[in-house]
């Protein structure tokens, strides 16, 4: 089978390219929403953990956060997705894309929490004391002095987490979510030709990963240049 015939069969015939287009749309949408959910959740968890470590308060909240992070980081993503879909939302009819938002967001939150926590802990104790000595409360000190510096330090790591998440969403097919990977697999099952659809899908992932990666690198350079 010639290359052009192969491409025609896998992409053009019956508008099969739409599986990839729609799949890519879902993949990007899940990634973006999960990143937002993950960052919000990650901040909350990191704030709880750091406050406990710095002040000794919030013992119960810290325990919950600690267990949450341990369980999420200690179990496979696929299994978490299946549990959210088949166990937690077993008796309610929730659109699969919402399930994906939640499952990937919850997962990302645990990783983001550890990244941000490392950022918060890297800030010198003297910064907390300087804030306190001026009369800022602990929360205000966090907000005005610690967080801005910590976020700057961990932005590259957060960018990498986004890249990881983009690729992780490829397991969404386990709950019959039509993402990019599943789109390619559907084409394969229709045309009995694996090479073309799977490699095209891989190339699309790689393309977006390289774009994200160059953005992260650019960000890193900018941060280094404006090092204050």
């Amino acid at each position: 089978m010639s290359l052009s015939r192969n491409l025609y069969l896998n992409l053009i015939k019956d508008d099969r390219y739409m599986y990839l287009v729609k799949g890519l749309g879902n993949t990007l949408l899940i990634t973006i929403v999960a990143v937002v959910v993950g960052i919000l959740l990650g901040f909350l968890l990191a704030y709880i953990r750091t406050t406990h470590d710095k002040t000794g308060n919030w013992k119960i909240a810290n325990l919950i956060a600690h267990v949450y992070i341990t369980v999420i980081r200690g179990t496979p993503m696929v299994l978490q997705l299946l549990i959210v879909y088949f166990v937690i939302f077993a008796s309610v009819n929730v659109p699969k894309i919402i399930v994906a938002f939640i499952a990937f967001g919850l997962n990302s939150g645990a990783y983001v929490a550890e990244i941000i926590r490392a950022g918060l802990m890297s800030i010198d104790e003297g910064q907390y004391e300087a804030g306190a000595s001026l009369g800022f409360s602990y929360t205000q000190t966090m907000l005005y002095f610690i967080l801005p510096q910590a976020i700057k330090n961990v932005l590259p790591a957060l960018g990498n987490e986004m890249i990881v998440l983009l690729k992780e969403t490829s397991v969404a097919g386990y709950i019959a979510m039509d993402d990019l990977t599943r789109g390619a697999d559907i084409i394969r099952s229709q045309t009995y030709s694996a090479f073309t659809p799977l490699l095209i899908a891989a190339a699309i992932y790689l393309f977006f990963v390289l774009i994200f990666d160059s953005l992260v690198k650019k960000l890193e350079r900018n941060l280094k240049n404006s090092d204050h």
Binding site: G126, E129, A130, S133, F145, P148, Q149, K152, H228
Partner: peptide, 11 residues
């Protein structure tokens, strides 16, 4: 309070 290590806010 003035500290030995200054503790200015670098950002």
């Amino acid at each position: 309070m003035v500290f030995q290590q200054f503790n200015l806010f670098p950002h």
